[in-house]
Amino acid sequence: MEGVLAIWQRDITKFFRDKARLFGSFTMPVLFLLIFGGGMSGTMETMMAGNMGETAADFNYIEFVFPGIVSMTLLMTSVFSALSIIEDKDFGYMKEILVSPVSRISIAVGKMFGAASVATIQGVILFALIPFLGLSYDPLSVLQVIPFMFLLACALSGLGLLFASLIRSTQGFQMTVNILVMPMIFLSGALFPVNNLPGWMEAVVTVNPVTYGVHVMKNVMVDVENTPAEVAEAMGLNLSVFGQEVTVFGAVVFILIFAVLLALLATKSFSRANA
């Protein structure tokens, strides 16, 4: 446990000490929100609420996209934070960790928690913008969603971890991760609805953990009971997989399993590593 904490704490300490990274991590999500929330909301609303009739006025794209942007921020930060593993390999510090008696699973979990914490901090920073976007969420549901954000970030950083432990170069890692991250954002319902997609894309949506992340975030944050049915549909509050309605609980379990599985895979690759 001490090992997990130490590895976690080192990554957090380094995050707060790196001024450029800190600045970037504050600005990037804000930029996304400006582009998607401010710039594109008019277009998106016309497109998405076109056939909703009189309830169309109740549909607000910013409300749709906000949980999506938060998820997207979690995804990008989590996965890219795993870069610290490649850095540690390059600068030799990974050797110091690997020759120590810290168990291999502690290394994987510590790294996972480190990346997930950084990502969650960034996601939470976005909440500060809620009043400026003309949105109103129940403060309690916003608080409720934070632990879930951490879980989602764990699953996603697990993905980064696995790649980082397999790939040797920084460039290779960035390339691979870019290829991975793009479809995960676009095929998750984070930025636009994912209805009526061709079959293979549907399959990506189904296995994509971000899909379930966005689903849970929307359902927890939005006041579902007081949302008209058509709006709820347009908001993507209802997600069904193989004809089955996905519950919040079901989605959480899916992400939990995903996180555990990746932690184990990363552990395995650390056990083999000869840094």
Binding site: E2, G3, L5, A6, R10, T13, K14, R17, D18, F91, G92, Y93, K95, E96, I97, S100, P101, V102
Partner: peptide, 23 residues
């Protein structure tokens, strides 16, 4: 090791403290 395995972004104190925790 032949290669440096310190974390140069951290202080000497932090490097030593983390080592204590690893071990």
């Amino acid at each position: 090791f032949q290669q440096n395995t310190l974390d140069t972004k951290l202080t000497a104190n932090e490097n030593l403290k983390f080592h204590c925790r690893f071990y």
